[in-house]
Nucleic acid binder design. Structure first.
Lengths: 337, 337
DNA sequence: TTGTAAGCGTTATCAG
DNA sequence: CTGATAACGCTTACAA
């Protein structure tokens, strides 16, 4: 049945033999700062090259209990920003010698299963870039000691055993609020994503607080069950239909671009309104589509690459951090507000 | 230094001891159709549950030389369709017990490196969903015996040692051509993606051939270096600026939706043209944005889920296929043409 | 700097 | 159906 196991099953022993050294020397040759003479290393590398040897990472992981593998747990694939994050993360990780196991959280209750999958491959860390990881799930996961490190990427978490690498949502949203107030909009409407139990309502809270503080009134808020342009589209229609002009918002501040795109589509194609003349819109993330001439969204860009680089230092353990890492991004002013 | 190795390091031996059986029996309990009595299995499972045991897949893979791991090699993250494919693929794979290693091909010449990464984790197969795998790369990869199976997903390949699972591009594009001709467009323009050496020019060729056959003239063709809406936007502007109205195409047939989106944006926002009144546009893939009210693209939907399911049967070896697998999708008629 | 012994946690295979 | 032996290919000591 299995006729594999032909060539390519070259082991360190084979190389050792070919190079006339011991297996352990072969090993050292492949380890960046091992104590090995330059000469030995070269002999080994030549033999390895000739035989087509590459270390078996499975065996290495088993023997060493570190795998140089991280799991990326994702749940909301409808948000286009996920594609950007996945690209950046895998790029930076791979450049630094880490491989990525992509785990699709199939549904709301799949978090434990997803984490289990990851742990069975002995990943060194699990990186969460989904939305459905509330603190209950995290505690359960950590309680079960499923993974060594749990890192929440691009989202806050209050869980003390978890490290989050994210943008300073409060600062970012305050900046957006100030910008919007600076343009003198009067009737704000905040469009939020899923209202889970964890701490990621920061954006909404920050906006609302800032507006209250400066204008003495509480902005209207609506939420959708997932970061999906289609859901945002429907939500806006549901919520704003049959509204008198003077009760219609003049600016819709969205928790992210996925929602902003849906909102803009609804505004233009359902309500037949112009943006920003009739209603302005702001987003968050600066997804690729935000720059396209149809949208030209005024949004906020997270420094994903820098965040990914921080992640790498966290993984390598250089930084014995347990504190959450906060970054500052920058507003990108375009035409939608 | 390492204070891990606390709990969770439960092995089959521990469970065996707790359950009063041998390690091998524990193992059998976790294997679907192993010869083990129902009673033994239950005892084992209870003990396992209590101790929180889960098989170490690293060790299993090492010992068995099958890993139940596949690598997904991706290179063009700017195409939104990739997100859809990744979601479907990981979903179907995981449901069937396969894990996914996501490998980002960092640049044009990274294919060998990416394949090497995958092979070092001893993946059972590498699935290619990028564009830069031309037949040279594939041959090299196979020559180096890097991976056991190489599967090209959603794209054709002529390489005989490779299996491709894709839509029947010829049939699909012929259907689109017929549709376009049926609407009586006269001046077609085909917008193609990267012109690599492999066989994926089928769409372009099919369209051109069909048009020639029925109309006796060769459609104009342009190509862009990557499936990126932004590139398509620029390409359309470069190519069509300063053209007299009667030389301007009345339908732009795009190799996929990523290009169609860029083309539509250029047509509307740069040339100030209406779609489909002034110029019609067709796409391919039916990405989520194709359905949004801004675009409403007439496109072609690939049966990704069925294709992913076929992939799984291919992986499990039930099908000792070496032939390429072709699927039929369906046209989705919307407003853009 | 280099070699050696003892595992890492499974599975294939064969004996009972 | 169950138990035992020998790998799988590497790493972590530690000794030479």
């Amino acid at each position: 049945m299995s006729d594999r196991k032909d060539a390519n099953e070259v082991t360190a022993d084979d190389v050792a033999q070919a190079a006339g050294v011991s297996r352990w020397t072969v090993n050292r040759a492949f380890k960046p700062n091992a104590s090995i003479s330059a000469k030995s290393r070269q002999t080994v590398m030549e033999a390895a090259e000739k035989l087509g040897y590459a270390p078996n990472l499975l065996a290495a992981s088993l023997a060493s209990d570190r795998s140089n593998l991280v799991a990326l747990l994702v749940d909301d694939f409808s948000n286009p920003h996920k594609l950007v994050m996945m690209e950046r993360l895998t790029r930076v990780l791979r450049k630094n010698g880490w491989d990525t196991l992509l785990v699709n959280m199939l549904d709301k209750d799949d978090a434990p299963g997803a984490l289990l999958s990851a742990s069975q491959r002995r990943v060194d860390a699990a990186i969460l870039i989904g939305v459905q990881f509330d603190d209950d799930v995290l505690s359960a996961a950590l309680g079960a000691r499923r993974v060594k490190k749990l890192i929440i990427f691009a989202r806050n978490s209050e869980n003390p055993d978890t490290i989050s690498i994210s943008v300073d949502d409060h600062a970012a949203m305050t900046e957006i609020a100030d910008y919007v107030m600076g343009r003198d909009y009067q009737r704000p409407f905040f469009l939020a994503g899923p209202q889970t139990k964890s701490a990621h309502l920061t954006r909404q809270e920050a906006f609302v607080a800032r507006w209250q503080e400066h204008r003495g009134m509480t902005p209207e808020v609506a939420d959708v069950p997932s970061y999906d342009p289609g859901m945002a589209y429907s939500a806006i229609i549901d919520r704003l239909s049959e509204r008198q002009p003077d009760a219609f918002p003049d600016v819709i501040v969205c928790e992210n671009d996925a929602l902003a795109i849906g909102a803009m589509d609804a505004l233009r194609h359902h309500f037949n309104l112009r943006i920003p003349e009739d209603v302005a819109v702001t987003g968050f993330d600066d997804v690729p589509a935000a720059a396209n001439p149809n949208y030209r969204i005024t949004t906020y860009r997270q420094p994903i690459t820098r965040m990914a680089e921080r992640l790498v230092t966290l993984l390598s353990g250089e930084l014995e951090q347990t504190e959450n890492q906060q970054f500052l991004g920058q507003m990108v002013i375009r035409n939608s507000a």
